[in-house]
Amino acid sequence: METVTDKKIVIETRDIAKVYHDSKIAVQALRDVDLEISEGEFTAIVGPSGSGKTTLLNIIGGLDNPTAGTIKVAGRDISKLKDSERIDFRLHNIGFVFQQYNLIPVLTARENVEFIMLLQKIPVHEMKARSLHLLEEVGLKEKANVRPSELSGGQQQRVAVVRALASRPKFILADEPTANLDSASAANLLDMMARMNQEEGMTFIFSTHDQRVIDKARRVVTLEDGIIKSDEVRS
């Protein structure tokens, strides 16, 4: 296994295990997962279905607690945070991109982007400037005032990425972001995220089994049956 970069570590998991109790059967989703992710990485967590990718991402994102082990994100052990503290932590530190886009259907693209900044209590003028700038960056300025139902899947996912970026998080977690996109939209989205990563130094962590994403990633962590099988850093 190769070592990762020497940049500042933003995510650190130690002996993470996760057991789900489905009816009377215990399912071991993760076992002894040790992982360090540094600032500015563009990492793909890959593996077959049921390998534990999403579980690991949920634990890193503070959406789920590990059954054993510790998880430090931005220097804090998030498994020890209260529910309300964890929600607040997510708001200010983590940007999420979901497979199903998950935009708020009753808000326009711009309002969707501004919504998270409203939760962060960012001043209105800054919020409006930032949302327009980001939408322009991803080529959606003209679509700023339309609702998600009027956007294509690729456009919706770009809005979702912009929403995640708008909150200026420490890193972005993307769960199968290209799973519902056609090739052109997926390529477009990946280019956009790679550009953000290189230009803004934003850390991206994907869970995926999409080869297009894996090809773009500079680090690929492979999970199998809840265990890290390989951790490859590309130049």
Partner: peptide, 16 residues
């Protein structure tokens, strides 16, 4: 349900 889950995931607190 999923939309509310997303709101909670991105940082909307329970009170809101």
């Amino acid at each position: 349900y999923r939309e509310l889950g997303m709101l909670m995931a991105i940082g909307m607190n329970k009170w809101r």
